[in-house]
Design a protein around this nucleic acid. Structure first.
Lengths: 217, 217
DNA sequence: TTTGTTTTGTTGTAATTACAAGTGCAGGTA
DNA sequence: TACCTGCACTTGTAATTACAACAAAACAAA
């Protein structure tokens, strides 16, 4: 006991399962069990090397895999952080379709297919931290890049944060801009669902003919 | 001219854009232009090292990226091959959700959210090679793996190939099985749209509460 | 206080080396 | 023929080294 080495355990080198995969499972578990919560800074590469007795090569191979699975986010000079659920990632990480498309040199545009206010379903309410039945604003937008339909997006927001949202014309403006400037909504309380990120030809043509279909749950 | 070195050109080391990214663009272009066709065996790692004057580290970094984008497929001992287009992979390559899920050791299940017959819109008609207004069968299914909603899928098929499809109970059976055995439909005439391949927790709960929403265009 | 510089710690890029493991073939052996 | 062994070639795993790029805090100078 007294001389127990401060390490989370060496990885099994003789095992047929590669070290980077063993390490990946270990880190994955820490994330999934909540030992490492979303937003947490996780140990740096050199620390992990020491903790598990592997080279930086192996640690980085593990990290790359976790990044591609969307479990962690890395930032040069700062560190590696546990990613929230994808939704949160894109919102809290300040994902903006408009900016994203512009960065690629394309012209972004949104078509509002439907919007309004409705009572929150149980599922939506729980995600937004509301009581079931509380009123939420919904918004379904077709997002286009250079007039090419790219994404169908449905957003829910608590109505109490968005009085008058339906009068706003935010075509061409990022939704978060509108909310931030005009309503000062706390971003972390917004949730969105994203559908159909695929942009293949057929999907596009299918989206194009959508008139204003009633897609609300 | 006479002594031109047989190489595809060294990469620019002084450039701010990393070598593995430069190489990635080069290989990507060869694939997208068709110089390397789907199924082709592309140069081995040592060959690429020689051709572009980079280390195997860099080549492998490039390859990993292309694999994650689905442009190439690698096989230990054999080599690296150009992957077909995704759509083709999944449809013409006889993609079957049921088989795919079973291969992963999970129990596949489908819930039919809506089905019926309608007149083909112009867009759908053109994709299926029909005259506008011809009748098509539509089918919206929620696909589950071990009771976890994974995919929301809408299929269109020409009615003339599918007389009586609505009487069939194909829960648990691959759609192509049903069509192949009972209707002998030519697979290449089928088209599908895939939505929401993401399986994160929130998306799942959102799908779960979908009663049978009218999602037809 | 404000600004600029240095230092420290982080991830990113890259080369090099070594061996393991899968594939296919050529050649030898029973 | 049938089987096996070795060899050549492929990708996979892993350690090591070096430096670049970025971020933030600590520090020094105006």
């Amino acid at each position: 006991m007294a001389f127990r080495v401060e390490t989370n355990g060496r990885l099994d080198g003789g095992s047929p399962v590669p070290k980077y995969h063993q390490l990946k499972q270990i880190l994955k578990e820490k994330i999934e069990t909540g030992e490492w919560a979303p937003g947490d800074l996780i140990p740096s590469e050199p620390e992990l090397c020491r903790m598990y007795g592997v080279s930086r090569t192996t640690v980085r191979q593990t990290m790359a895999s976790l990044v591609s699975e969307g479990l962690i986010v890395r930032q040069q000079g700062k560190g590696t952080f546990v990613a929230g659920p994808k939704i949160e990632q894109e919102l809290v990480g300040f994902y903006s379709f408009t900016e994203d498309v512009m960065r690629k040199g394309l012209r972004p545009r949104s078509e509002i297919l439907s919007k309004g206010v409705t009572a929150a379903s149980k599922a939506v309410a729980s995600k937004l931290g509301l009581a079931p039945g509380e009123r939420v604003v919904y918004l379904t937008r077709l997002r286009l890049a250079d007039e090419e339909p790219i994404m169908l997006e449905t957003s829910y927001l608590p109505e109490k944060y968005c009085q008058g949202l339906d009068q706003i014309d935010f075509r061409g403006r990022p939704l978060y801009d509108v909310l931030g400037q005009d309503f000062n909504v706390e971003l972390t309380r917004a949730r969105e669902t994203f559908e159909a990120a695929v942009a293949d030809e057929y999907e596009a043509s299918w989206l194009r003919i959508w008139p204003g279909a009633p897609v609300m749950p």
